[in-house]
Design a protein around this nucleic acid. Structure first.
Lengths: 174, 174
DNA sequence: TCGAATACTGACTATACGGTCATTTTATAA
DNA sequence: TTATAAAATGACCGTATAGTCAGTATTCGA
C-alpha cells in the first residue's frame, strides 16, 4: 500500500477513502483488464463470418493481448503475492468468449460443416491450447510472431474438426 | 511453520535442524511429488507401443494423478501463499514427459503414420489440453470419469494428427 | 472574509509469521 | 551411574505491512 500511494502521489490514508481494502484494489484492477480482454475477444470473434476465422480470431486476439499486457497475464496466471483468487476468477471471465466460440462450433456442427463433437468441450480445449502457448511465450520459450502461432493453432484445431482430409483446404480458400 | 510443527508433533525449532527455511520445505515437497508424477508418466508412455496409445496414456495418467493428489495439483497451479515459484518449476518438471511424447510423435511422423507437424509444439499442446481438463475438474465443472476425458482428448488429438479421414478408425482397431 | 464541510495526511497500531538460541531432555559410552 | 554429546524445545525477536485516525489543508457557500 505504501508503494501504491507513492506511485499515485498521494498519502496512504487517502487510498482508503476510495477503496475499502487492498484486496478490493487488486480485484478492481483485474476486473478492469479482464473486462477489456473479454470484450475485445468477443468483438473479434463476432467480426469473423466463418468458424475457422472465429477460431483464428480467438487465438490471435488473446496472443496479442498477452503480448501487450504481459504483467497482467502473469498475474492472472500465477496470482500475485497472497492473492491467488485467480484461477476461478480467470475462468469466470473467460466463460463468455469461450461460450461464444462454442455456439459457433455448435452451429457449424449442425450445418454439417464440421463433424459432430461436444462443442463446449472443444471450445474450452481451444482456450487451453491458447493459454499454453501464451505461457510459453511469457517464459521466453517461444520467439515466433503471435500471428504465426495463431495460424498454427487454428489450423491444428481445424484439422481435428474437419470432416474430410481436404476440408481445411476448402476453408483456406474461403 | 507453527502449523507444520504442530501437525508433525515436534517443536518449531526442531524443523530447522532438518530444513534451512520454509521455502526449502515447500520445494522439497513439490519436488518429491513432481518426481513421482514425472516418473509415472514416463513409464506409462513407454508401456504403450502405438502413438495413439502413448497419447492416451499421457492424458490418462495425468488425469488420474490429479484425481488422487488434488491438493498438489492445486498448488502446482496456483502456487501457495507467497511462493509462486510454480509455473516455471511446473514446466521444468513437465518437460521430460512432454519431450518423450514429442519424440514418439516425431517417429510416427517420420514413418508417415501421421502428417508432418512440429512434434514438440504438438506435444506441448497435448499437455495444455490435459491441464485444462484437469483444472476444470478441480473447479468442479466436470463430473465425467478420467478415462472418459482421456479417451475424448486422445481421439480429438489423433484426428488432428491423422493423415486421412479414416486413419483414426484404423488406429482404433489396432 | 470566514466558518463549516470536505479531502487529505502520515505517524502510529496491531498482527502475523519466519527464524533464533539459551535451556532442557534424551541417547550414548565408559 | 555419570559425564558428555546429540537432539529437541518453545519463548522470544525482528520485520513486514494492512489498516487507522487525530490532526492539517483545501474547497466552497454565504
Amino acid at each position: 500500500m505504501d508503494e501504491i500511494a507513492k506511485e499515485v502521489g498521494i498519502a496512504k490514508g487517502t487510498i482508503y477513502l476510495y477503496f475499502r481494502s487492498k484486496k478490493e484494489i487488486y480485484k478492481a484492477v483485474l476486473d478492469h483488464d479482464m473486462e477489456f480482454l473479454g470484450k475485445s475477444t468477443l468483438e473479434r470473434i463476432d467480426a469473423e463470418s466463418t468458424l475457422k476465422g472465429k477460431i483464428r480470431a480467438f487465438t490471435l486476439v488473446r496472443l496479442q493481448n498477452a503480448e501487450e499486457k504481459k504483467e497482467f497475464f502473469r498475474i492472472m496466471d500465477l496470482g500475485s503475492g497472497s492473492y491467488p483468487l485467480t484461477r476461478s476468477q480467470y475462468y469466470q471471465w473467460l466463460r463468455a468468449p469461450v461460450l461464444r466460440l462454442a455456439s459457433a462450433i455448435e452451429d457449424a456442427s449442425q450445418q454439417g460443416e464440421i463433424r459432430r463433437l461436444p462443442s463446449e468441450k472443444v471450445a474450452w480445449i481451444i482456450a487451453d491450447m491458447t493459454r499454453g502457448v501464451i505461457q510459453r511465450r511469457l517464459l521466453g520459450q517461444n520467439d515466433s510472431e503471435p500471428a504465426e502461432d495463431a495460424e498454427f493453432l487454428s489450423n491444428f484445431i481445424w484439422t481435428a474438426l474437419a470432416i474430410g482430409p481436404h476440408s481445411s483446404k476448402f476453408s483456406d480458400l474461403s
